[in-house]
Each structure stands twice: as structure tokens, then as C-alpha cells.
Design a protein around this nucleic acid. Structure first.
Length: 937
RNA sequence: GGGCGAGUGGCGAAAUGGCAGACGCGCUAGCUUCAGGUGCUAGUACAGGCAACUGUGUGGGGGUUCAAGUCCCCCCUCGCCCA
């Protein structure tokens, strides 16, 4: 600061001094502590009688790099909204936790040689400090980290509830396993593995294990040798690699924990309708669940009485056009179907296909290949004998591993048929094609009348739409025993175990027969054992046949235990897997509600208050309950958001929560992008050291190439909130981030632009504070009429914008208002309080400071937000633009209560309008009251 | 290939179907200053004009309408998700 800068100017240094002071005061006074209706966090403030609002951020993963300015974009948005809603009389639950288990922490620990518990604690500390500095109004008493034993005790407990339940397909809900046992005992339900009455205890246990919602079973899973663990489908990228680390992933059959999320497929799909989420996210979830309705069709095999080839098709109505079949090379019937003269070719083809990656096999653009098995199947509709081929574009892990090929209606089948000269039978008459498929350039996909689709007992030729065609075919298939209507899903069960160290241990032990047992509640939490042998066993990323080894396996004294879990003291072996990163984030919002509850994961009364479908501010029909506003990035569209909905629904079914859905309203914030610079070797250079001269960028004197990308260490373009706070203060950073554009848009960070909102705060400060003395400086004379109107228009506009999370325009309105005051020469005393209150949700530190200077003792946090006087929003006169044929030619000012005829008369008499009309007679004059006039010639 | 979204000044962006470009950055000029910076004042879509003003403008093409950045159809480009 220069010697001639006034001592009390709103500088970066002053801002920091003010901010630090208010952070301490907020903490000391517990300003943001929010009461619950019952339990240890209840109080006598009466706030719990207010309408509630639960505002939630997707909690961060505390990485070692700390926050950059892009991270808190959403947090600042929710903070502004939370502060605004407090000022409009709501009891606001707003806090922040940490999603601290997972691979990156473990990888960082392995690299640095420090225990992940240490690095995680340190990182959480850094995050807490950085978030505090931004002035986020969190109720810090409610903060949790998923790695706290007091937290993951309940993660394990919820796992056990899922383990101890089964899905009742008739009632379409999860129920307790005890109720299943009762149904077996009463003979109301039949066991699938034998006669329940005569089963041994161990056999009964194994029968029950097949029903559980969380089960350990052999299944094709994604094995990632490079990470040393299996991963969920949702964690595999489109090109068959791990989303963490980008290592190859291989399909292998392994015994792993699975969560039966597929039981909930329809409910997860249907309940999207009652959620206030963007269509884009809903579409992604629908897409991921991938429900498709069709039919299972059984094809008899020529010369084979026992076996049939079963396929799933979404288009059973095209069955008349099925002229051959294709099996995956791995299909179990392949060997049986292959005739001796084709066995050599089939064996060679199988071997070649086995060496291919699944991802490559799905590539639609690839040249089709396949071989004939020598066998024929019978099309049940046409009774035609059709050849059975194998081809690598059919995958065993998808559907039944076999397809009926309808070359006239499917492009892949069409190409295959053309290549191998197989019959292409037309079953539709396309409008612009001949019926002779030899003349077709490609398959016909679309609506057209059916032809050649009549076998005497089923006639589709008179059907004109797919729905009826499917329905009639399905009915025929069922009646004749060749198949039935079937619904399939793309969604797979959730692979829930990981062979890593840094995660929640399973609360499961195995008896000497190898049967899993859930531990009793009193034995929770199963604490993650302390060890310095936490490195995972990693393999050559390409070594598909390697086998996972859990780090916990190396701790025999922890693994082998003698316990009494209800059957007396026995020897058990602990499960050595850990839960995936996503487990802790499946229910954290519930723990925020009741973070200190030792007896329950959340008290039902508190859950009802904060999450229930019928809240204090209810007027809700079909409301699913849940968090009122959930803000986070779109990258969790199918991972966290799907898993968390699933857990929540299980908890709902079991009666533990009153809300059907966890997150009623979801808002996806955009990303902060930043310029990144590459030198001529393609290496990223430190963005802060790049100079801009004459439209070109230079680093150490050499020209560099500019691109825009996500802010971060890898692009060397991170800007930290700490640096921004040090230069301008947190209020300026908050305003800049929010003024850049709408919250849901991604935009590039420009450090040089920050000064705009800094100047705004400086001007506003100067309108209220004498820069030389630091004393309040307000205008003695009362506000003139225009100032009063500007103020009330600002109040109305800021309310409107904040109600809709449009912080960018709210800030613009405040700047406009302040620009008016600046022209006026300062702020009239009578409007000062109101101006400061309008600012309070957005720039809380400077607002608190001004509020205090204006003589108020209490924090501004719970002051009522200003309400505009409607009388001040209307004006005596209105200036109408007058258009002639849609072009503005003049303006007229008339009384605001003038009727249309008066407005029209004034418009017609206007000089400029007269000139534009040039004597022509209008054919029509349109007057939109309060808006404009259009004269049509 | 399918689904969703977006294209507006030099830049970030505003705009219930009703005067396109609010607000901010940058830029230009003036004041402040020895100077730079800060601060203040004014201007700033483009083209023409000293000016009043005129014309043109929201990716391209068509349409609906008294009126279209906004609604509808086609196309182009970009982003995301799924293939």
C-alpha cells in the first residue's frame, strides 16, 4: 500500500483483518449452530419450529494438493443460499464433511511412505482451514469424515442391515431375513436349494445367503491388476480401463461381495419422476439402468431334443425375419453344436476371439467375422431351418450370449449376412425401397408395414405399429411355449469389495465351514487394523490371470479370531476385503442430521424433521422427502447418486428413514476452467509465469501454446483460494466466482478480472465508511424518490435472483444500486441498513463489519432480509418504445395508468413516428400495456 | 451412430416472445499524479458520418408471429453421457 492510500480503504489487507475477526467471532458465538428438534443438538432457541431447509454440498475428497479456486464454486453458492434462507426465516442445516477413504489417499501414502491415516488427517485439516477462510457458514459440530470409526461404525451397521435383508419380489420391498425364515418355516415360500424342513443348519444358512441383498458370490467381475483390486462396472471407462489410473480391466469370474442394486432397478427408474433433477442427469441414470422390454425366445435345434438356444430380443416382432443365429464363441452350446467338419475352424475362431479385448469386440465399425457351426436351429414362427454361427461381436457377458439375427432390420446382422451370403428376408415394406433386399444398401430401421409375417396362427401383416407387433408375438410365444415377454436391464449388481487397505472393513466373519456371519452390533465398529503393510499387491497391468490379495490378509492375528457371536465361543476368520470408496458417501447426509448419536445412525424424529416428505414447510403432494438442495458436479451422475439412492431406498424399506429419496433437488454446478500452456515439447509450463504480449503468450521468452482445461496440478494452472484471499480477501473471491456466470455453467478463470468485484466492494465501503477515519459516513439528507425506488427495485430483483440461485445477476443488481449511490455522493442514512443486509449473504464479512459500524451489536446472520414495498416498484409514468413494422422509431412517455387508446394516441402523435409513417395509414396498432406499441402498416 | 446441452461485442456474460449487449474485465480520453500504479469522470457491438442520425447485427438456412437471441424445422460447430 502506498503512503497516500487512505488508511481505512477497503484493501486486501483490511479485508483479511476483518475476515479473520469475524471467523473467530462466528466460532465463539456458534453463530451457525443449527438446532435439531430432539437429542443433544436440540436447544431452546425456537429455531427448530421454523420451516427447515437442508442444503448439502457433495462432500470433497481431501487430496494432498489442497483446494484450488474451482473446488469451492458450489460451496460458495450453497453458502450464499444458506445465508439468504436464514435471513428469510428458515432453520438451515448446512455443514461439510470429508469423503476420506479411497484409492488416492492410499496411493499418496504409498508414495510418501506415510500412513494414510496421517496424510488423510493432515489433508482434512488443510481443507478445514481453507474452507473456514472462505467464510462458509457451516455448523461445524455436524462435520464428519467417513474415516472416523464413530462414522464407519454406522456404515458397517447399514451394511449389516442390507446383509440381513432380502428383496421380496411380490411386495417389491426389502424385508428382514427373519421374515424370510418365518415364511420358510411356515411353508409359505419354497427354498430353492432343497427342502427347508429337512435342511441342516449349514444348508439353511447357505439357502439364506442366496437371498440376501448383499451376498458374496462367484460372478464375472472387473479385475484390474494395475490397481490390485476388482472395481465396479461404474468405475470402468468406455474403453475398458479403470477410471482411476487408466489401467486395463479384465472380466474374470471371482468370488466377491455384490449388492443387489438390480432388485431396485424399476424403483430407481420410476422415482426419477418425483425428483427435481435436471433432465440431463435423469437421462444418464435411465441410460445406465438401461431397462429394455422385449422377449426371451427359445429356438429348437435340429436333431437335438433336449437343448434349445435361448435369446433375448427387444424386437420380437421381427422374429419372422430371423434367418440365422449367432452365438458368442464362449457360449456353452458351441462345442455340442459344432459338427466334425467345422470343428477345426470353430476351434481356431474361438482361440482368436479369446485373445481379443471385450472393448474391441464391441466396436461397431469393425469388419465382421464369424464361422458356421454346421448346425441348424428352427425359427419358431416361420418353422424355417436357420444356420447357427459363432461370431465375436456377440458377447457372452451380455444377455444370453446368443442372438437371433434379423439382417433386414439390424445393421450388424445385415453386414454379417452380406459378408457370408446368408439370407436377408424382408419383413417390412419400407416406403422408398423395393421388397427385394438384394437392392438394399443397408438394414432398414424404422416404422413400416409388416410383410411376410403370417404363419397361420400369428398374422402381423395387418399390424401397423411396433407395440402391437411385440405384444401379439409375445402372446404367441407364451401360448406355444417358445418364450415370454421379458424385461432386461443394463444395470448390473454392484461389486462391493476391494482388495485394498484404506476402506471400511466388512463386519463379517466366516465360520469353519466358510459361511459368512454378520457381527452383532455390540462388536462394531470393526476398526481398520493399524499396520505399516498397507501397500496393495499390484501386478503387471496386463497380467489378466493374476489374483487379488488383500493387504488385510497379511495380518493373521487380526484375521483369525475367537468370538461369541451368539453360538458360544468359536473360531472365525474375518473378511479381509474393504468396502469401495462409495460406501461412506451413500448415507453421509443422514449422519449430518445427528452426528453425535451413539445409539442410532440417525434419530427418527430428527430424520423426519430434516428429510421427511411432510416437513414444516410442506404443501407437498407425492413428495419423496430428502435433502432440499444438493449441489455438486455432474461426474457423479451414475456412481454416487445411484448408489446413495439405492442405500436410501433399502433404509426406507426397512423403516429406518421416512424419505423415499435422499436428494429431492439436485443442482449440478459447472467447472472452473483455466488457461494452460504447453511449450514446444508439449510440456505444461507454470501458467502464472506466462506473459501475454500482443496476443501471444510467452514463457521464459519463448512462445507457448494456450488451451483451456480443468484447473489442477497436472495442467500447472491451479490458482489457490489462499492466494486470492491474501490479495483481495475472501469476500472478493466469493463475489468473483459467483459473478463469472450462472452456477451451472463452466467458465474460464481470469485472475485479472477479479479486480472488478474488488472495486465494487471498495466503492460500497467508501459509500458507508470514511476512508481516512474509518468512521461511518452516511448522507444526512433523506433519500430522494429515485434512490428509494432504486433501492426497492434492487430488493425485489436480488430476492428474485437469490431464490433461483442466480448469484451472478444478483451481484449485478447490487452493483447497479451501488453505482447509483456513488453518483449520489454516498449512502443516505435511512437506506444504509438495507443495503448492507442485501449484501450479507454474498459478502458476509464486509457486511458484518459494516453492520457493526452502523451500530448493531448482533450478527447480521439472522436479520430479516429486506422486503420491497410494492408501491415503490411502480412508477407514475412509463416510457413506451414505439415500433413501426417492428422497428423502434420513437419513444413516448405516458401516465402508467393510461389506457390503451391513450397510449395509442400518444404514439401516433409522436414526431419521429409521424416521420417514419410518412403519411401512410396504419392497418393495425398493437398496444401491449406497460411494454410497447407496434404500428403495422 | 443414439441421447442431452450449448453457440450473443476483443473477453466473462445479461435479456417473463416486446427497445439485444445489464454488470464486470479490457480498451480510449480527461482529471488526480513528477511519473507509474491507485482512485474518479466520460465513452466503448459493427459499418458510414463532424454530428444529429442511418444501416447492419445473437453459428448458417427456412418457418410461425404485429414482434424471435428466445418458439418450430433443417444444417454446421463445440461440449458431455452412452454406444
Amino acid at each position: 500500500m502506498d503512503a497516500d492510500t487512505p488508511p481505512h480503504r477497503y484493501s486486501g489487507a483490511l479485508a483479511q483483518e476483518i475476515e479473520a475477526r469475524w471467523h473467530d467471532r462466528w466460532d465463539e458465538q456458534g453463530t451457525f449452530d443449527t438446532p435439531n428438534p430432539v437429542g443433544p443438538l436440540a436447544d431452546s432457541s425456537g429455531f427448530a419450529d421454523r420451516p427447515k431447509l437442508f442444503i448439502l454440498d457433495m462432500f470433497p475428497y481431501p487430496s494432498g494438493e489442497g483446494l484450488h479456486v474451482g473446488h469451492p464454486l458450489g460451496f460458495i453458492g450453497t453458502d450464499m443460499y444458506a445465508r439468504y434462507m436464514r435471513m428469510t426465516g428458515h432453520n438451515v442445516l448446512y455443514t461439510m464433511g470429508f469423503d476420506a477413504f479411497g484409492l488416492p489417499a492410499e496411493q499418496f501414502a504409498v508414495q510418501s511412505g506415510q500412513h494414510p491415516a496421517l496424510t488423510t488427517a493432515k489433508n482434512v485439516e488443510t481443507y478445514r482451514r481453507q474452507l473456514r477462510r472462505l467464510g462458509l457458514s457451516h455448523d461445524r459440530r455436524r462435520s464428519v469424515a467417513t474415516t472416523d470409526p464413530g462414522y464407519y461404525r454406522w456404515t458397517q451397521w447399514i451394511f449389516l442391515q442390507i446383509f440381513n435383508s432380502w428383496y421380496d419380489p411380490e411386495r417389491n420391498v426389502a424385508r428382514r431375513i427373519d421374515e424370510l425364515i418365518a415364511e420358510f418355516d411356515a411353508g409359505e415360500r419354497t427354498a430353492t436349494t432343497g427342502d427347508w424342513k429337512t435342511m441342516s443348519a449349514s444348508a439353511r444358512r447357505q439357502e439364506l445367503d442366496t437371498w440376501r441383498l448383499a451376498i458374496a458370490r462367484d460372478a464375472p467381475v472387473n479385475w484390474c491388476p494395475g490397481l490390485g483390486t476388482v472395481v465396479a462396472n461404474e468405475e470402468v471407462t468406455a474403453d475398458g480401463r479403470s477410471d482411476r489410473g487408466n489401467f486395463p480391466v479384465f472380466k474374470r469370474n471371482m468370488r466377491q461381495w455384490m449388492m443387489r442394486i438390480t432388485s431396485y432397478a424399476d424403483r430407481l427408474l420410476d422415482d426419477l419422476d418425483v425428483l427435481d433433477w435436471s433432465d440431463a442427469i435423469k437421462a444418464m441414470q435411465r441410460n445406465w439402468i438401461g431397462r429394455s422390454e422385449g422377449a426371451t425366445v427359445h429356438f429348437p435345434i435340429v436333431g437335438e431334443a433336449k437343448e434349445r438356444i435361448t435369446v433375448f430380443t427387444t424386437r420380437p416382432d421381427t422374429l419372422f425375419g430371423a434367418t440365422f443365429m449367432v452365438l458368442a464363441p464362449e457360449h456353452p452350446l458351441v462345442d455340442q453344436l459344432t459338427t466334425s467338419e467345422h470343428s477345426k475352424a470353430v476351434a481356431a475362431y474361438k482361440k482368436a476371439a479369446g485373445a481379443q479385448k471385450e472393448f474391441d469386440r464391441q466396436d461397431a465399425g469393425r469388419e465382421k467375422s464369424g464361422v458356421f457351426t454346421g448346425s441348424f436351429a428352427i425359427n419358431p414362427l416361420s418353422s424355417q431351418q436357420i444356420p447357427v454361427w459363432i461370431a465375436d461381436y456377440v458377447l457372452m457377458g451380455y444377455g444370453t450370449g446368443a442372438i437371433m439375427a434379423v439382417p433386414c432390420g439390424d445393421q450388424r446382422d445385415f453386414e454379417f449376412a452380406r459378408k457370408y451370403n446368408l439370407q436377408i428376408a424382408a419383413i417390412q415394406q419400407p416406403p422408398d425401397r423395393l421388397l427385394d433386399t438384394a437392392t438394399w444398401p443397408d438394414a432398414f430401421i424404422g416404422d413400416a408395414p409388416y410383410v411376410n409375417s403370417d404363419n397361420g396362427s400369428l398374422n402381423l401383416n395387418k399390424v401397423d405399429n411396433i407395440d402391437d407387433g411385440v405384444r401379439l408375438t409375445n402372446e404367441w410365444l407364451a401360448k406355444n411355449g417358445f418364450g415370454e415377454a421379458t424385461v432386461t436391464y443394463k444395470l448390473r449388481d454392484w461389486l462391493f469389495s476391494r482388495q485394498r487397505y484404506w476402506g471400511e472393513p466388512f463386519p463379517i466373519v466366516y465360520d469353519t465351514d466358510g459361511n459368512p456371519h454378520g457381527l452383532p452390533d455390540a462388536m462394531l465398529p470393526v476398526e481398520l487394523p493399524d499396520t505399516d503393510q498397507f501397500s496393495p499387491r499390484l501386478f503387471d497391468p496386463e497380467d489378466a490371470m493374476s489374483n487379488p490379495e488383500s493387504p488385510l490378509d497379511r495380518l493373521p492375528e487380526w484375521v483369525n479370531v475367537k468370538l461369541d457371536i451368539g453360538d458360544g465361543m468359536q473360531f472365525y476368520r474375518r473378511d479381509t476385503n474393504v468396502m469401495p470408496q462409495w460406501a461412506g458417501s451413500c448415507w453421509y447426509e443422514l449422519r449430518y442430521i445427528d452426528p453425535t448419536n451413539e445409539n442410532n445412525f440417525v434419530d427418527p424424529a430428527n430424520e423426519r424433521y430434516w428429510m421427511g416428505p411432510k416437513g414444516k414447510n410442506a404443501n407437498r403432494t407425492k413428495h419423496p422427502g430428502g435433502v432440499d438442495l444438493y449441489v455438486g458436479g455432474v461426474e457423479h451422475a451414475v456412481l454416487h447418486l445411484l448408489y446413495a439412492r439405492f442405500w436410501h431406498k433399502v433404509l426406507f424399506d426397512l423403516g429406518y428413514v421416512s424419505s423415499v429419496e435422499p436428494y429431492h433437488r439436485l443442482f449440478n454446478q459447472g467447472y472452473i476452467l483455466a488457461a494452460a500452456y504447453q511449450d514446444d515439447r508439449g510440456m505444461y509450463v507454470e501458467a502464472t509465469e506466462v506473459e501475454n504480449r500482443g496476443g501471444k503468450q510467452y514463457y521464459e521468452g519463448k512462445v507457448v501454446r494456450r488451451e483451456y482445461g480443468k484447473m489442477g496440478k497436472s495442467l500447472k494452472n491451479a490458482v489457490t483460494p489462499d492466494d486470492m484471499c491474501a490479495e483481495y480477501g475472501a469476500d472478493t473471491l466469493r463475489l468473483y466466482l459467483m459473478s463469472m456466470g450462472p452456477l451451472d455453467a463452466s467458465r474460464p478463470w481470469e485472475s485479472k478480472d477479479v479486480v472488478g468485484v474488488y472495486r465494487f466492494l471498495q466503492r460500497l465501503w467508501r459509500n458507508l465508511v470514511d476512508e481516512d477515519t474509518g468512521a461511518v459516513r452516511v448522507l444526512a439528507e433523506p433519500a430522494d424518490d429515485e434512490t428509494t425506488r432504486v433501492l426497492h427495485r434492487t430488493i425485489a430483483a436480488v430476492r428474485e435472483e437469490l431464490d433461483h440461485l442466480r448469484f451472478n445477476t444478483a451481484i449485478a443488481k447490487l452493483i447497479e444500486c451501488n453505482n447509483h449511490l456513488t453518483k449520489l455522493g454516498g449512502c443516505p442514512a435511512e437506506v444504509a441498513d438495507t443495503v448492507v443486509k442485501l449484501l450479507a449473504p454474498l459478502a458476509p464479512h464486509v457486511a458484518e463489519e459494516l453492520w457493526s459500524k452502523l451500530g448493531h451489536k448482533d450478527s447480521i446472520t439472522y436479520e430479516p432480509f429486506p422486503v420491497a414495498d410494492p408501491a415503490m416498484l411502480v412508477t407514475d409514468t412509463i416510457e413506451y418504445p414505439v415500433q413501426v413494422n417492428g422497428k423502434v422509431r420513437g419513444h413516448v412517455t405516458v401516465a402508467s395508468d393510461a389506457d390503451s387508446a391513450t397510449v395509442q394516441k400518444a404514439a401516433m402523435e409522436n414526431d419521429k413516428v409521424q416521420t417514419a409513417l410518412a403519411g401512410a395509414k396504419p392497418s393495425k396498432v398493437i398496444v401491449i400495456p406497460g411494454r410497447m406499441v407496434n404500428i403495422v402498416l
